[in-house]
Nucleic acid binder design. Structure first.
Lengths: 224, 224
DNA sequence: ACTTAGATTTCGCCG
DNA sequence: CGGCGAAGTCTAAGT
């Protein structure tokens, strides 16, 4: 990885066009051709400009040009170098993957193992119940043996309600599942999603991953 | 901005938990307390780990700990330093904002100035036509003087169709606009969005920003 | 190869 | 400050 600290101005043309006036910035150039431009202010996560590989990098004449074929046209990042303050290269060796726990998939697994958190007396029939427009996260039977489709999100927005509504519409075409109910289970449910869901007769359940796993005691406020 | 290149392992706990095994990485520490962790492989745009300000950074004993209050709990980034290969700080001065052109807003402006690109004989009634669930991008009259609501996207997915459908449902509650038509205008319309739109009687128009502005000649394939 | 859905999405605007 | 929509979203998985 090459790290250049330089006073520079930058123009990008591609899916849109942008301009950055002259300032001191960090240019991060990766071994695979990826380029990112950073400034001390602003976002810690998103560069001011960037280009993902594969790229062609041309350097010289007080300028670095990063080019990339994007369909018919060309994406282009033109970096006008006024003054180089530092220019170092570090060998970082092989990649090391990030191991994650706590994403939506993990919540689905935990709820599949303990479906009663989705509703009283719920028993799992199957995960990833297939419909012709995609799989429903969980299909359960409730305490009265009724069918219930469960949609799981980490954060549930109005889109999640629309998605579950589409699934229910397909599922209920089967006469045997004509009265299939719907439950939206999420770590966070946005207020508008809750309003729309309840207007459509869809139940909402907020769940905590650690509690579902049994790693943490439920708050006393639950079911209060 | 402080740039540390070090062999390190990293654990994050917060909205989820992650682990990174020992490897050489770049630690980018901004003046505002923002921290990002980079490796030579992988994304050019997203760090392996990060924490946005405000943070508290504690350093010492072969370890850097970045902490942040996140509601009741605490987000924590623990960086175990095995070997420091480089540690430099650069003053980058004041911020310099990015100027953009070509985002959705610009497409809306261009189509408002030339609504005929949305449909034959279209005349603009107003931009940001208000409904009780938010504003419709454009409200037009078509060549037969009928009302038409236009939803504009840079890339139109199935969500855009759902959004316009919700708007039309509200608009048509007004008896005077009972037959209001819908048009989805975008630089790119995804196939599934087109299918759903046409099933709902919503017209689809693909537009090019430069053409709408008159900066580029239309392709011969238009209207072919 | 293309499409879809998730993301510690992040970011910006507007109430 | 919270909610909502856009993003050069990016990225991984499934078809």
């Amino acid at each position: 990885m090459r790290l250049i600290v330089a006073r520079c101005s930058i123009d990008y043309t591609g899916r849109l066009t942008t301009h950055l006036p002259e300032a001191v910035r960090l240019l991060m150039i990766k071994a695979d051709g990826g380029v990112a431009v950073w400034h001390d202010g602003g976002s810690s996560v998103k560069p001011q400009n960037w280009m993902t590989p594969p790229t062609v990098i041309e350097e010289g004449d007080g300028q670095i040009v990063v080019r990339k074929l994007a369909g018919v046209t060309e994406d282009r990042l033109e970096i006008g170098i006024v003054e180089v303050l530092s220019d170092v290269t570090h060998d970082m060796g092989e990649a090391a993957a990030l191991e994650k726990d706590g994403v939506e998939r993990d919540l689905q697994e935990a709820l599949a193992a303990a479906p009663a958190w989705c509703g009283e007396g719920f028993r799992l029939v199957r995960r990833e119940w297939p419909t012709d427009i995609g799989p429903v996260d969980l299909m359960c039977r409730d305490h009265q043996d009724g069918w219930t489709a469960v949609e799981i999100k980490r954060v549930a927005t109005i889109d999640a309600v629309e998605q579950l509504t589409r699934y229910l519409e397909r599922i209920r075409r089967d006469p045997a599942m004509e009265f299939c109910a719907g439950v939206l289970a999420a770590q966070v449910i946005k207020p508008q999603a809750r309003v729309l869901a309840e207007a459509r007769g869809i139940a909402c359940v907020e769940v905590d991953l650690d509690v579902v796993r049994g790693d943490r005691e439920p708050e006393l406020t639950l079911f209060a």
